[in-house]
Amino acid sequence: MDVAAAALELYGLPPDEFTAARNQVAQQAKDAGDNGSSATLKALRKPTLAAWLANLLVRSDPDGIAELTDLGEQLRQAHVARDGRSLRELTLRRHGLVHKLVIAARTQARAQGHTVSPSTEQRLIETLDAAVIDPGAAQLLRTGQLTSALRHVGFGVVDETGDPAQLTPVKPRVVRSSPRKPPAKPPRKATTRRTAQSAPATAARSRRAELRTRAEQAEREYAAAETERAQAQAELDAHEHQLADLKATIDRLTEELEQARQLLRDASRRTRALQVELNRTTRNATIAQQRRDAGQQRLADLDR
């Protein structure tokens, strides 16, 4: 049995279908006499809802996930180059893309009958942010086989329990972009047009339309507020990067200043030592000159 292919398919299933499907595949492998594959499949962990949402995005929008992880590389390069303008622009793009992906995941989950709570949505945002910050987290996300949401905590990436993030115990396969097939349209059901409608039915439809309009307006207001928040977050991130750069520059200049002071102290000691040596050699030269002059005078006296 191709365990990697089976795992990839399993992690594309909703969490409430995962366990039964995993056990069935593991049993099939056992029935075929492949006990090793059966044990490996049986050990696969059920994904949390946030992890499933991330896996869902990898499958439904691989190009968006690729754009997100590529953006992380661009941000790292801009940070190394200390390019403040690029950092601000890329950070704004990052928040906009994360917001877009989260909305897409929430919409797809709702279509499959799953409600995404604010806490689950926050875990998904943290997962996407971790993939931007950490190349290892980006690789974990691209496999489409997360079992837990990810979070970057400064020294690495952890899962929802706070433990270091681990991939599934099978060799990961990266889900790549592929042409999308249009969804099959359900057969149109025959309807009978009613020539007259009751007043309660009309009122109910009017009420639903009103609620739908309110919901759409609320969604637009939320999107506008989130965009404004993302812009503020982008500005804050850019200034934090600038602050970190300035602190690093101060540390570097402080170290260079201390090194220069040490060189100055060493040079001063060497100068004093050379001055002492010069004084000694000058005295020796003076004494030697006096001896030479005295010898020449004695020779001159003998010649008279």
Rank of each mutant, 00 (worst) to 15 (best):
S178E: 12
V174T: 15
L49T: 12
V175F: 13
V276K: 11
F18Q: 08
P118M: 02
A223V: 05
G136M: 01
G64C: 00
R269I: 00
L124V: 10
A7G: 14
S268Y: 03
T195E: 14
E160A: 07
G84W: 03
P200L: 00
R106E: 15
L246R: 09
V102N: 00
A199T: 10
E17P: 06
A285T: 13
D34T: 08
V98I: 15
T115H: 10
V98A: 03
K171Y: 05
V98Y: 02
R173L: 13
S198R: 14
L92F: 07
R193G: 01
G84L: 10
L8N: 09
T91H: 08
T147F: 03
A288T: 12
L57R: 05
A20I: 09
E9R: 14
Q28G: 08
P47F: 02
A26W: 03
N55R: 05
A230I: 01
A105N: 05
A32V: 07
R283Q: 12
L92I: 04
L101N: 03
L44A: 06
L253D: 06
R94S: 13
H99Y: 04
H79K: 10
Y222K: 04
Q145D: 02
F18V: 06
D251I: 05
G72Y: 08
R93A: 07
L53S: 08
V153N: 09
A54K: 04
A184K: 15
E219W: 01
E216V: 08
A267K: 04
K185Q: 14
E277M: 02
A6F: 01
E240L: 12
T254H: 13
E255S: 15
T195I: 09
L56A: 10
P187S: 06
A238G: 07
S206V: 02
R173N: 06
T168I: 12
G12N: 06
T107G: 04
T143S: 15
R270V: 01
